[in-house]
Amino acid sequence: MPAPALETALDGVRLHVVTGKGGVGKTTVASALGLALARQGRRVLLVEVEGRQGISQTFEVAPLGIEERRLVHDPSGGELWGLSVDATAALLEYLQTFYKLGRAGGALEKMGVIDFATTIAPGVRDVLLIGKVYEAVGRTTGARRGHGPLAWDAVVLDAPPTGRVARFLGVNEQVADLARVGPIHSQAESITRMLHDPRSRVHIVTLLEEMPVQETADAVTQLTGEGFRVGALVVNQVRDTVPPAVLDTDLDADEVEEQVRADLATVGVRSGARTVGGLLAEGRAHAQRLALERELTTEVEALGHPVLRLPALAGGVEDGGVSVLADALVEQGVR
């Protein structure tokens, strides 16, 4: 089945959920996506929920707290803000808002109740975390709740890895079943509605390696089956293509080795057996890797969703690498 155009997967989307196998660069991609949107004049909130401070490290700023903080102000007028959601703070805030607990919140904390609710009670932690995201997506700037323009043009969520993301996003249904009445129940229902809305999309980040691609395929099936909408598949760390000369040549042929030796000699590179053999070995390994990557690219493309590609940065993501990636997203039509 042909993949839908990127516009249909991204236009009008208010909540971008970014997931992927551990180690594929979810936080970097979520950051690059937030930055790409901010560079086009949007007001964007980038949220992390695992307390890892990945966002502050990516943007090289002081650790984020439970207050939203501006990370980038773009000349286009766009802004990128960051937030690290903390379940304990969210629960205390929640209890304060709905129950006017005052100092009793502290007593609950001492009793271990807060600890129970945020770490043990199944799903409550996730409901609280997504609850903050839900609040940000729907927040308005008017004097009264629900009135006036929306506070954020888009919210980008650096979500848990593919192995846990369906459970994380689906937790509200689970909680709605366990807690059959009460405010948690009704909030869980509203959140579920938001997550299934066409304006919420789950983007899956992968590398061109076997396991991440396999997990991506599994996640597409699982998320789709549970009624979430997959947005784009983001292939991260794509290596530059090598000139076809390397791939199309039989690197084992004697005359090829002879030619490399001769060529190196003409430009004054020491052309001993180790150098020549080493260069050819690097070429062979690379060709092998690329062949596998081609196969995996075909698999990713066959999943039926638009594919975005981000280059491998030889210097890593440090020192503004995320900016390069944001540009790459804009070039590919992310808006």
Partner: peptide, 20 residues
Amino acid sequence: GPAPGLTAALLRLHTGLAEV
């Protein structure tokens, strides 16, 4: 030679790998 441009391509590949 039998594979024009091959040596330069291998050298550039090496440059990239060396950086990583």
